[in-house]
């Protein structure tokens, strides 16, 4: 069966430096795969490669079984992307931002659905008609998450998605991710938050200096053991 997301011996260069070196993984439909790594490990670059912003220097990258290089537009239309710092437009309200970006994606959504999505991310109702420049970082992130929900794409790429969220909002976000995966969405998230990754992911891949150096999977309905992953992460980061 074709995996929605697959990297085959993927190597990437950015400005002459190797950021990924022969990384291979696949994410199954309805699976949450978390790529864990420190700064500069190549996590964000991996997401950008799936979106066609970075061309592989080696190997291949596939979305729904098709090479991204062959049809970037098809790959992007299947993916909702949540960047690390959710940079929506500060001079527009949450509704206006959602409206603009959904228009941009060519997606027609009813106004009522905006509120459903914003309710799911718990963005206060009174804030929704305010400009984003008055929002906290967490509120902006919630708006961006709502956008990703409304896109209703089969694949979700999340770059440090809980950055800026308070602990309650992080827990709510983790529940949301699980719900989405349960509904069949394929989710690849990159993070350096070991606890968060273990809470939400079905599998965790450990990325270090451009190489996938470890993999941990949830078994028997249990979550991935945070202690084990943290020990491996700490060991790898210090060696």
């Amino acid at each position: 069966m074709t995996s929605p997301l697959e990297a085959r011996s993927l190597s990437l260069n950015r400005e002459g430096n190797a950021v990924l070196n022969g990384v291979s993984f696949a994410v199954a439909e309805g699976e949450v795969f978390a790529l864990l790594g420190g700064n500069g490990a190549g996590k964000s670059s991996t997401l950008l490669a799936f979106l066609g912003f970075l061309e592989p220097s080696g190997g291949e990258i596939l979305v729904n079984g098709k090479s991204v290089a062959d049809d970037i537009a098809a790959a992007r239309s299947a993916i909702a992307y949540l960047p690390e710092a959710a940079a929506l437009y500060g001079h527009m309200t949450a509704y206006e931002n959602l409206n603009y970006f959904l228009d941009l994606a060519g997606k027609s959504v009813k106004k009522a659905d905006y509120d459903d999505a914003l309710n799911r991310v718990a963005l206060p109702r009174e804030a929704r008609s305010r400009r984003l420049q008055s929002y906290s970082k967490g509120m902006r992130q919630k708006t961006a998450i709502a956008l990703a929900l409304l896109r209703e794409t089969p694949i979700l790429l999340l770059d440090e998605p809980t950055s800026g969220l308070d602990p309650v909002a992080i827990d709510e976000f983790h529940d949301l991710v699980k719900d989405l995966a349960g509904a069949g969405q394929t989710i690849l998230m990159v993070t350096h938050d070991v606890y968060g990754a273990c809470q939400v992911a079905d599998r965790v891949g450990l990325l270090r200096r451009g190489q996938l150096v470890g993999s941990f999977a949830a078994e028997n309905g249990e979550r991935i053991d945070t202690e084990t992953v943290h020990a491996a992460f700490a060991e790898r980061e210090t060696t």
């Binding site: 950008l48 912003f53 970037i72 992007r76 992307y81 940079a87 970006f101 941009l104 994606a105």
Partner: peptide, 18 residues
Amino acid sequence: TARRHDLLLATAGSSKSL
């Protein structure tokens, strides 16, 4: 500069339509 470029292009699908 606003770090919105990639999100915009990823959402639009192609630079031409943006």
